[in-house]
């Protein structure tokens, strides 16, 4: 009798795991009602995904074809329309969410916040990597050097190291709450460090005159429009990927629970 009741609760769990976000409500408890593929994604998520990808494609069109060629820098300047938004998404929302969710986890001890922090850090590193790779490719033909120790560049590099360290810390711990706790400690310290890093590097570079600055780019109104649109598109993509990744991590943790139950039987 106990086996049966446990079995049916497990089935319900399986269904919840498949449903991901828990939007399926009560639902039937029979196993045949579970379809691993198909309708388990809520509609709004698909709409968000289509909107994100479509707007990134529109931004691509705007950046490559619609925007006029920059007078001084020429075609290479078109990298900027994706370089700057990636930097913004990583340094702004992505790493700030790691910080906020780290604090919330330590207060509430809810692993969901840890998963959000982990997913956001992953995306932050992804977008920082894009920033760090596109920057030099843009700088080389214009300034003649791939890298300059410009404050923004250097801060971005240090930031990249901090959050790669954060991900490495996460990957070296397996147990859920322990990983959440320790990575939250590092996530908070790392984020507080960022403005200090920026200030220190800025002082460092102003004491020794900067060779190259990022200023002096003239953006006309259509260029600005493309930039703002690309900013929105990349932000939307970030939100979409974050939701998908968090749901996936949620699902993974439910499966882990199920697996434990299956071992118990």
């Amino acid at each position: 009798m106990t086996t049966v009741s446990r079995g049916s609760s497990v089935e319900h769990d399986t269904q919840a795991a498949v449903a991901g976000g828990g939007s399926s409500g009560g639902g039937a408890t029979t196993a045949t009602a579970v379809h691993p593929t198909g309708a388990e994604r809520p509609l709004w998520l698909d709409v968000l995904g289509v909107a994100a990808i479509a707007s990134v494609l529109v931004a691509l069109y705007g950046a490559i074809i619609w925007a006029p060629t920059e007078a001084v820098m020429g075609h290479v300047q078109r990298i900027f329309y994706f370089h700057m938004p990636s930097a913004w998404v990583a340094l702004g929302p992505a790493f700030t969410i790691v910080f906020i969710c780290s604090i919330v986890y330590l207060v509430k001890k809810d692993l969901r916040y840890d998963r959000i922090a982990g997913a956001s850090a992953e995306l932050g590193v992804l977008f920082t990597t894009i920033t760090l790779l596109t920057g030099p490719l843009w700088a080389k033909p214009i300034w003649g050097a791939y890298w300059t120790w410009d404050p923004r560049l250097t801060t971005t590099l240090v930031l990249w190291f901090i959050y790669v360290a954060y991900l490495m810390l996460r990957s070296s711990i397996t147990e859920g709450h322990r990983r959440a706790r320790l990575s939250a400690v590092f996530g908070i310290v790392g984020w507080i460090d960022v403005p200090i890093v920026f200030m220190s590097i800025r002082w460092w570079r102003t004491i020794h005159p900067t060779l190259v600055t990022g200023e002096g780019m003239n953006l006309d109104s259509s260029m600005q429009a493309v930039l703002v649109f690309a900013l929105g598109a990349i932000s939307l993509l970030y939100v979409y990927l974050l939701v998908v990744r968090v749901r996936q991590l949620d699902m993974g943790s439910r499966i882990d629970r199920l697996r434990q139950q299956s071992h118990l039987r």
């Binding site: 490559i64 075609h75 290479v76 078109r78 990298i79 994706f82 370089h83 894009i130 790779l133 596109t134 490719l137 843009w138 080389k140 033909p141």
Partner: peptide, 8 residues
Amino acid sequence: FLFAGYAV
């Protein structure tokens, strides 16, 4: 360079 940037 533009191509390489977008490829990345």
